[in-house]
Each structure stands twice: as C-alpha cells, then as structure tokens.
C-alpha cells in the first residue's frame, strides 16, 4: 500500500474523465472512458478488491465500451460539446 500509487492513479482518472467529457470526437471520448474504466479497475485491484476489479475490467471497460462503440457506429461520431 503505497499511497503515491493511489494518488497518481486518481490523477490519471481525473484527467481521463475530463478528457472523455471534453473531446469533440465521440470515439475518442469513448476510448477515454474505456481507459478511465480500466484505471478504475486498476485502482480497485490496488485497493484489494480483486473481484470488483475483475468485474469492472470485463463489464465496465469491456462490455460498456463495446456497447458504446456500437451505438456510436449507428449514430453520429462528432458532437458540438
């Protein structure tokens, strides 16, 4: 348990979250979201919750990303905000 790991992971999370929300290219935003989920999973594992990390990695980063991307392909990729 080294607190710096947690700290930097959290900083990355915030950066990823802001990126996901501010990108005008939705595919990029979704990618940022997937990265965000993945880092959340890492953080979970770091905090001792391996089960949760596993689920977050498969469901949160995996399936959610896939669903988002399908939805993106069926709709528009760009957005004004």
């Amino acid at each position: 348990m080294i607190w710096q790991i947690d700290f930097w992971l959290l900083v990355i999370l915030i950066v990823a979250a802001v990126t996901a929300l501010s990108l005008h290219d939705l595919l990029g935003a979704v990618a940022a979201l997937a990265a965000y989920s993945f880092f959340v999973a890492l953080l979970f594992a770091q905090m001792g919750a391996i089960d949760v990390a596993f689920v977050e990695a498969t469901l949160g980063a995996g399936i959610t990303g896939v669903l988002f991307i399908i939805a993106l392909f069926l709709t528009k990729r760009r957005t004004e905000d």
């Binding site: 391996i50 089960d51 596993f54 689920v55 498969t58 469901l59 995996g62 399936i63 896939v66």
Partner: peptide, 18 residues
C-alpha cells in the same frame, strides 16, 4: 477460491458469442 464467479464468467461467455 479466487476472483471470479457468475458475472465475470457470464460476461466472458457472452464475449465469445459476440
């Protein structure tokens, strides 16, 4: 015995079909 269970396994099964 370790990380895993119905949810994770179910998701993986689904991924294989996808």
């Amino acid at each position: 015995y370790g990380p895993g269970g119905g949810f994770q396994g179910g998701v993986l099964l689904a991924v294989s079909v996808l």
